[in-house]
């Protein structure tokens, strides 16, 4: 029993980071209809920035949580302005290809700049793990696990609130529902897209800060994150922020449970099987956003 609970807790922590990465992916997709395959690269940049701030510059940890979202948000906005804006009229298919190669370009740039296998970043919250007694067994929960789970949830809820209530969120929702209509209502496509990329990039940066201690900073982070975030997003219905959070947690649980009770070599296969099953069985995701009545 204790072991099972520890598997669950471990899975939730991994899932929380997936969820964080997926939220940013969805914000961008919702407002701009672009699936940003370079999102993993942005998460990696966020983690790298955390390394610079915490390890190289030795600044207080909280600064990483404040500065990095802004920084990566700006980077994402620049990508949208310089590369994706000129492609706005291009085939969606071409845009996807462009973001795939953009993502690889980001991780290659990092690899060339930092010729190392992996950079380690210390945990944000230190201290001995907490022990809970359950009959004769011990359940061990680390402070980092709690921090990451709570952090991801908080960020998810904030994202949800922004999207629903803030003016920037309203403009993105309008754009998501009907581009032409939103333009008629006075929203500028360029501005809304830039905002969406900023918010999506900021979330990616934040996901990077949360992921850095448990994943380390390496070029491979980009690919592993984008795959997991995508699976989480598909499970959640690709347009639902709440769905992405649940999707991320489900994915983390499924991976860890199958590794624990089926075979440890099965881990990555499980996420792909999950994606496949959801796409075939419920392409609209397990938690589809109620579609508007736009005809």
């Amino acid at each position: 029993m204790a072991e099972f609970l520890m598997v669950i807790i471990g899975g939730l922590k991994i899932g929380a980071i997936y969820a964080l990465a997926a939220i940013g992916l969805i914000v961008i997709h919702k407002a701009t209809k672009t699936v940003n395959f370079a999102h993993g690269g942005l998460v990696m940049l966020g983690a790298f920035a955390a390394y610079l701030i915490v390890v190289e510059l030795n600044w207080p940890y909280w600064l990483a949580y404040v500065l990095i979202p802004i920084l990566i948000g700006i980077v994402a906005t620049l990508l949208e302005i310089t590369i994706l804006r000129p492609l706005r009229r291009a085939d969606l298919f071409i845009v996807i290809v462009a973001t795939i190669f953009l993502g690889i370009a980001l991780s290659e740039t990092f690899r060339l700049a930092q010729n190392t296998e992996m950079l380690a970043v210390p945990a944000a919250i230190k201290g001995p793990p907490m022990m809970l007694e359950l009959g004769e067994d011990l359940i061990i929960i680390t402070r980092e696990q709690i921090w990451v789970c709570l952090g991801a949830l908080t960020v998810g809820v904030i994202g949800l609130l922004i999207f629903r209530y803030a003016p920037a969120g309203r403009s993105m929702r309008a754009m998501a529902a009907n581009v032409r209509g939103a333009q008629l209502c006075g929203y500028s496509v360029n501005r809304v897209y830039a905002i969406a990329w900023f918010v999506g990039g900021a979330l990616a940066g934040l996901a990077g800060v949360f992921a850095a201690p448990s994943h380390g900073v390496s070029p491979e982070l980009a690919i592993s994150v984008i795959t997991a975030a995508f699976v989480a997003a598909v499970i959640g219905g690709f347009d639902s922020l709440l769905g992405a959070i649940i999707g991320g947690l489900l994915l983390g649980l499924a991976e860890t449970l199958s590794a624990a009770y089926v075979s440890s070599a099965m881990k990555s296969a499980v996420s792909f099987l999950l994606l496949f099953v959801v796409l075939l069985w419920r392409p609209e995701g397990l938690f589809p956003e109620a579609k508007g009545r736009d005809v």
Binding site: F37, F93, I96, F230, V231, S268, F272, L273, F276, P283
Partner: peptide, 15 residues
């Protein structure tokens, strides 16, 4: 599927 979902299905096959 088209677009990103097709990309992912092919990625699943690859993996």
């Amino acid at each position: 599927f088209r677009g990103h979902n097709l990309a992912m299905v092919t990625l699943v096959f690859q993996a």
